[in-house]
C-alpha cells in the first residue's frame, strides 16, 4: 500500500483548509452562531421545550449536522474537482496509487475538515446553551460516519461536475433544503401527519434523528433505522465510486 502517497494527498488537502481558514472554519462557525441567536433566542423564547429538551439545546445536533453535511460534500467535491479543473489530476492518476488510496487521501481530508468543524460548532454551542451528550460513543460514531459518507458523496459530485456551478448545485439546492426540512430545527412529530409521512422520504431526517438521540436520548426514528439509512447511503456511494474508477468515467476516457 502506498501510504506515503495517501499522506501526501491528505496533507495537501488539509493545507488548503489552513490557507483558507476564513472560508473553511470561521464562516460556518459564525453562520451557526447566528442560527443560535436567531432560532435559539428569538424562537426559543416563545417555544420553551421540544420533547422535554430546551429549544436552544434541542437544535444543537441539527445545526452540527447541517454544517457537517454541507461541508463534507463541498470539501470533497472541491478537492477532486480543482485538480480536474487545473489539469493536475494527471499526476494523481499516473502515480502508483490505487483508487482506494486516492479516495482515502481526498475523502479522509474532507471528512477530517468536517469533523473539526463539527467539534468547533459543538464547542461554540456551549457559549449559547447548555449542551449535554448522553451517548458520547454514538455521538462520535455518527459524526465520523456521516462525515465519511457525505465526503464520499461529495467526491462523486466533484468527479461528475463540469463547472463550478454544477459543483454548488447539489449542496445548495439539494442538501441544504433537505437538512432544513429534515428536522434540524424541529421534531418531525410536530408536523401534521401527512408531512410526517413525506418527511420520512428525506434521508437527512434519519441522520439528524440518530445524531440527536446520541445527545439527548430522544429521536424521531429508531437508532437501528438511522444506522441502516446511513449504511445504505455509504454503500451506494462506495459502489458508485468503484464504478467511476473501474469505468474511468470523467477521469480516464
Amino acid at each position: 500500500m502506498n501510504l506515503r502517497g495517501v499522506q501526501s494527498i491528505y496533507l495537501f488537502e488539509m493545507a488548503r483548509m489552513w490557507r483558507t481558514l476564513g472560508q473553511s472554519i470561521a464562516s460556518p462557525v459564525i453562520a451557526t452562531s447566528l442560527y443560535f441567536i436567531v432560532f435559539g433566542s428569538a424562537i426559543g423564547s416563545r417555544m420553551k421545550e421540544v420533547d422535554g429538551v430546551e429549544y436552544g439545546t434541542f437544535i444543537v445536533p441539527g445545526l452540527i449536522m447541517l454544517s457537517v453535511l454541507t461541508q463534507s460534500i463541498s470539501n470533497a467535491a472541491f478537492g477532486i474537482y480543482f485538480p480536474k479543473f487545473t489539469g493536475t489530476i494527471f499526476e494523481i492518476l499516473s502515480a502508483p496509487l490505487s483508487y482506494v488510496e486516492i479516495i482515502m487521501g481526498y475523502v479522509g481530508a474532507a471528512a477530517s475538515k468536517a469533523i473539526i468543524l463539527g467539534v468547533l460548532i459543538f464547542i461554540t454551542a456551549h457559549f449559547f446553551v447548555d449542551v449535554y451528550v448522553e451517548h458520547p460513543f454514538w455521538m462520535v460514531f455518527f459524526l465520523v460516519l456521516t462525515s465519511i459518507t457525505f465526503s464520499l458523496f461529495g467526491f462523486l459530485i466533484g468527479i461528475w461536475a463540469n463547472n463550478f456551478e454544477q459543483l454548488q448545485i447539489v449542496p445548495l439546492l439539494v442538501i441544504t433544503p433537505l437538512t432544513f426540512l429534515g428536522g434540524s430545527f424541529y421534531s418531525i412529530s410536530m408536523l401534521p401527519p401527512f408531512w410526517q409521512k413525506v418527511s420520512m422520504l428525506n434521508p437527512v431526517v434519519y441522520l439528524i434523528s440518530g445524531f440527536r438521540w446520541s445527545f439527548y436520548g430522544k429521536s424521531d426514528v429508531s437508532l437501528e433505522v438511522s444506522l441502516l439509512i446511513i449504511g445504505c447511503i455509504l454503500l451506494t456511494s462506495i459502489l458508485a465510486i468503484r464504478w467511476v474508477f473501474k469505468s474511468g468515467y470523467k477521469l480516464k476516457n
Binding site: N2, L3, G5, I9, R19, T86, G87, F90, P96, L97
Partner: peptide
C-alpha cells in the same frame, strides 16, 4: 515513469518546493 505533460498544469497557490516535494510523496518516496 515520470511524465511532463504538454499543458502547463500547476497548482497556482503552491510554492515550487512544496509542489515538487508533493510529487515525490505521491510516488511513495
Amino acid at each position: 515513469i515520470g511524465l511532463v505533460p504538454q499543458e502547463l498544469t500547476t497548482d497556482a497557490f503552491e510554492t515550487v518546493w512544496k509542489t515538487v516535494s508533493f510529487s515525490r510523496g505521491l510516488f511513495g518516496k
